[in-house]
Design a protein around this nucleic acid. Structure first.
Length: 833
DNA sequence: CTCTCACCCGTTTTT
DNA sequence: CGGGTGAGAG
């Protein structure tokens, strides 16, 4: 491993000696070059090396810069070697970005940062080293969602559970949720486990875990959960890592879930502690009743915290105002309660925004100030005011697309780069309208998001072949490709193999081998199964002698897989073949097949985008972390944004998350932010009238300009909604008093959206209160209030009928309905019976 | 075993 | 309206 001092040579000005105590002091006095461009807050965040630090980094305040500079600082101060810094991100993209920036800062020292990566890749890496301690082998497979669901389907079938009423997908969701919360099968509260499959949910979870071990596989959740289990059951292993990591850095802390929190917490303790509390407390007593989740999810808190030595040097960077992944298990509470979890934490706010102009920033800040559950930050800029944020009303979504298309062409004529233009939508179905329009206009565009590369069917099929070559016991891979391309080996055959495999406790491919020797199969099926097995034998031999990239080509060719797509005349067949080529190309980066397979599910992502000039179209979620000069934000309508479902299922917490999403959208823009709403939109095939989003009303009128739609014809001249009504734009600049607007406002009363338990007016007036922050002291305000219900209560709901409360999360209840299955509802919708 | 038709349902998405 | 799934026919 590279020595730190060698690393910093390139970075430290030449007159400064590189190491030693006195030298270090001299260096500090001279302000190293890498600290020079930082503002005082950033600098404090970089230089506060000891103890827990929370950096609240608003949008565009230089978060990544702080993280990378902090690492450079640690290294140059000689406080740790590269291998002693644990630095975790959420996405591979973020990890790559950090490696890249670090590389620029330190010279090409990136190889020296072995522990910079995503939670999952680092978790997976640790797990491979100690695999046998959690009953896996070090070459275990990481399952993707598809495999997971297929596995669960089998378990449901084996248990004779109607997978119509209890879909495997739903169970997968539940298990995922439990894993996100760090719960092993034994720890799932029994009330919750009972919700699925008439009380068999918990049993199924346990069976699933057992099955994974047999298959030598782990799902994404396991990469963390099994890590936690490893650490808890083997304190010596934990101590080893605690001792190794002198510094811990966490990016996007607002997105961490409970499992990630627990993992960080374990690693951030001083190595000598044995942490009795963490094992004991975390075993949730299922019937402990009311405080439920909240009491159980924080092992090691309170009294115990005081007995544990102070956490090490952990620095978490995040922005509670950009927490938009609550629906996927992220706990905003983690960031809201940081100083509680890590006593003595230093909180540093980065509020200087270097991205957006004044109007945009003011609009975004004012909007997000309507949220109550936040730590409170006020973004500032020294930039010019720039153009006001525009709001444009359209007749329908088609006119919206037309209008935006025209504005883009106008920007293009004015010399703007298409690469600096983005359209950010709430839901992906909105994208199609824009694509259609851009095709008509001949405007180059690219859609960001879509299915990820390794999730595409053709890639997974190809991978299944490779997995099976690598590990003949990979039943899921076997099942996937046994009849792809079609070989006349259908359900019946697979069923038979399953039976034999189960009876003799052998993998499917071995069962196949046995069956081929008998006459249990019809000659045709038997012949093609034998041919398949022979092919695999041959490939396994060839694997030893030829490069893995060559092997794939042979496999794809000889299996008839390539041919299958060549014969396919559907429109996307060519693209699929292209993807397969891309797969082969991407394999070149890896040493061998094994190495490739270990990384594929964790590290691969689509990145094919060539850098031709094109407009980007993507969802608000995938826009997080990006920035553009010009940002179009269509579809600001009640029901779509905020999304009705978020409101229905999460009540106020849902609304606040939607608002954070709006805030993320606005803060993507450097110079122009253009909002749109349509009064008519087609939802599920039929047209319905919509109302402008409440978020539009929450924008400060001073920073907003109402403009007329440039979409042309659509607005029905006599309707009273026409652009002519927007004639004297100046006069209503401060009040939105256009007739159309007023009418839209009046419509609100009868709109169904306030059944979300958040009447429009209430939320508006309430949120005028100052954010809940008291002089730098964090007032951790959980999203949602405490419910008056307890688990087990029998309740009635207007739409879903009778049910039993399974779980409580703030004012959000998970209820097992007798007819409708499990649903999440806001407590104000149900009554106790 | 494969193909077709009826039916159901409909945010956001990483690893 | 349209994509994905499951049951039944060929």
């Amino acid at each position: 491993m590279t020595e730190p001092n060698r690393l910093i040579h390139r970075d430290v000005p030449e007159h400064q000696p590189a190491a030693g105590g006195i030298a270090a002091r001299a260096r500090a006095a001279a302000t190293p070059q890498y600290l020079a461009g930082l503002n005082p807050e950033q600098r404090e965040a970089v230089e506060t090396l000891d103890g827990p630090v929370l950096v609240l980094a608003g949008a565009g305040t230089g978060k990544t810069r702080v993280l990378t500079t902090r690492i450079a600082h640690i290294l140059s101060q000689g406080r740790a070697r590269p291998g002693e810094i644990l630095s975790v991100t959420f996405t591979n993209k973020a990890a790559r970005e950090m490696k890249h920036r670090l590389g620029q800062m330190l010279g090409h020292a990136v190889e020296g940062m072995p522990w910079l990566g995503t939670f999952h890749s680092i978790g997976g890496r640790i797990l491979r080293v100690h695999a046998e301690l959690v009953h896996l082998k070090s070459n275990f497979t990481v399952l993707d969602v598809d495999d997971q669901i297929r596995l669960l389907k089998q378990l449901l079938q084996a248990d004779n559970i109607d997978d119509k009423r209890w879909p495997a997908r739903m169970l997968a969701g539940l298990i995922d949720g439990w894993k996100n919360r760090g719960l092993t099968p034994a720890q799932v509260p029994s009330g919750e486990a009972a919700v699925f499959g008439n009380g068999r949910g918990g049993k199924l979870y346990a069976a699933y875990q057992a099955r994974l071990k047999i298959l030598n596989a782990a799902d994404f959740g396991d990469l963390l959960l099994e890590n936690i289990r490893l650490f808890r059951e083997h304190p010596d292993v934990l101590r080893q890592y605690q001792g190794r990591f002198k510094f811990i850095l966490v990016d996007e802390y607002q997105d961490t879930n409970v499992a990630q929190y627990l993992w960080l917490r374990l690693l951030s303790q001083a190595p000598s502690q044995s942490l009795p509390g963490l094992t004991r407390q975390s075993v949730v007593s299922p019937e402990d009743g009311s405080p439920g989740l909240d009491a159980s999810r924080r092992p090691g808190d309170d009294a115990l915290t005081k007995n544990i030595s102070p956490p090490k040097n952990i620095c978490c960077v995040g922005d509670d105002d950009q927490s938009i992944y609550g629906w996927r298990g992220a706990e905003v509470d983690n960031i809201l309660r940081f100083d509680h979890d890590f006593p003595g934490a230093k909180v540093i706010r980065l509020e200087r925004n270097y991205r957006s102009t004044g109007h945009i920033l003011a609009a975004a800040s004012h909007l997000i100030a309507h949220n109550e559950g936040r730590l409170g930050k006020t973004l500032r800029t020294e930039d010019v005011d720039g153009e006001k944020v525009t709001v444009t009303g359209c007749w329908d979504s088609e006119e919206e697309a037309r209008g935006i298309g025209e504005e883009i062409e106008q920007l293009q004529r004015a010399g703007e780069k298409l690469n600096e233009i983005a359209i950010l939508v709430r839901a992906s179905f909105q994208m199609r309208e824009f694509e259609d329009r851009f095709v008509t206009l001949g405007l180059p565009y690219r859609v960001i998001g879509g299915p990820r590369f390794y999730e595409r069917a053709e890639i997974r099929d190809a991978l299944a072949y490779l997995r099976l070559i690598n590990s003949p016991a990979d039943d899921l891979a076997f099942e996937r490709i046994v009849n792809v391309p079609k070989r006349g080996l259908g359900d019946a055959t697979v069923q038979m193999l399953h039976e034999i495999a189960r009876k003799r406790q052998i993998p499917l491919s071995e069962a196949a081998r046995a069956v081929v020797e008998t006459d249990e199969l019809r000659p045709k099926a038997r012949g093609s199964l034998r041919a398949l097995l022979d092919s695999f034998d041959r490939w396994r031999v060839q694997r030893e002698t030829m490069p893995h990239t060559e092997l794939v080509e042979i496999v794809l060719d000889e299996s008839g897989y390539t041919e299958m797509w060549q014969k396919d005349r559907s429109a996307d067949a060519a693209g699929r073949l292209e993807n397969l080529k891309e797969l082969v190309r991407s394999m070149e980066e890896f040493e061998n097949l094994q190495g490739f397979l270990e990384h594929i599910s964790l590290v691969m992502d689509r990145d094919g985008g060539p850098d031709e000039d094109a407009v980007s179209v993507m969802t608000l979620h995938s826009a997080k972390g990006l920035e553009f000069d010009n940002v179009f934000l269509p579809g600001w309508e009640e029901g779509l944004f905020p999304h009705q479902r978020a409101l229905d299922e999460q009540g106020r917490a849902g609304l606040e998350e939607e608002r954070r999403l709006a805030h993320v959208g606005l803060t993507r823009a450097r110079r122009r932010a253009k909002l749109y709403f349509a009064t008519n939109r087609r939802i599920h095939g039929s047209w319905s009238t919509t109302i402008p989003s409440r978020f539009l009303d929450e924008l400060p009128a001073h920073n907003v300009e109402i403009t007329e739609s440039k979409g042309g014809s659509g607005w029905g001249g006599t309707g009273g909604y026409g652009p002519s009504r927007f004639d004297n734009v100046e006069s209503f600049g401060s009040s939105y008093a256009t007739p159309g607007w007023q009418r839209a406002q009046a419509n609100r009363g009868r709109g169904g959206f306030n059944e979300a338990g958040t009447p429009y007016n209430a939320s508006r007036s309430k949120s005028k209160h100052a954010p809940l922050t008291i002089d730098g002291e964090l007032v951790a305000k959980s999203t949602g209030t405490t419910s008056s219900f307890s688990p087990g209560d029998r309740v009635f709901h207007q739409k879903f009928g009778y049910g039993k409360v399974a779980r409580i999360d703030g004012n959000k209840l998970t209820i097992a309905f007798e007819k409708a299955g499990e649903k999440k509802v806001v407590d104000s919708f149900v009554e106790r019976v």
